[in-house]
Write a protein that binds this DNA or RNA. Structure first.
Lengths: 105, 105
DNA sequence: GCCGTATTCAACCAACTGGTTAATTAACCA
DNA sequence: TGGTTAATTAACCAGTTGGTTGAATACGGC
């Protein structure tokens, strides 16, 4: 699927339904039905989204009777946040205002 | 393309070449050729990636003779970082350890 | 004006996405 | 055991992505 973890993470975050799922899971674990209902998504569609999120390591799944609740794994979010922070810092730490010049040929 | 800005931003961040471009731009503006060379990408491919980044508001472009340098727009990165931070905080502020129970039927 | 460099545009294409419907598996309950 | 609920799997499909090649455009230098 994806070779590098960051691409998998940002890909997972790119879909509004998946961000809504993560936002919901930030308030505690939830099962497929509970995740899909407020979004108007079928269980099948939710199942696919959860697979993407799990592949990125953003959620973990357990078994509880006939339910398979998903829970947020905040560490994966932290990696993405770290990349953003690094890039922003690199920008700030840029040595003085540089000219707009492309490099020489 | 995308209706909501966050989806456009995370979609733009999802491709390793585009993250490499942003990381390069964090060190200062650069033109298409300079961006593509270290990545082994054709100018056409870079042009497409820049269009995605520009559509997400992550870069701005100018004109300098025959070059069209791109520059990072850090504010757009901040919005993505904000969403991650909000979601992580919501998770931390969760009122005590909650039971794993899905809602009643 | 013509040439060379930088960049974009257009068309094409294989691979992937995100949804659907239908069928299957897993677990509880009476 | 049979019936119900929860969830996954498989097959399908339109739309998008990310690259390609080839042609066109923009600008500066001579």
């Amino acid at each position: 699927m994806h070779s590098d973890p960051l691409s998998a993470t940002f890909t997972a975050l790119a879909h509004p339904a998946r961000r809504a799922i993560l936002a919901r899971l930030a308030r505690g674990p939830a099962a497929v039905m509970d995740l899909g209902r407020p979004l108007g998504l079928s269980p099948q569609a939710v199942s696919k989204h959860l697979k993407v999120l799990e592949g990125a390591g953003l959620i973990a799944r357990t078994r509880l009777a006939q339910w398979r609740p998903a829970a947020l794994v905040p560490e994966a979010l932290a990696e993405a946040a770290q990349w953003l922070e690094d890039t922003r810092r690199a920008r700030q730490d840029r040595p003085a205002a540089r000219r707009n010049e492309p490099s020489a040929r």
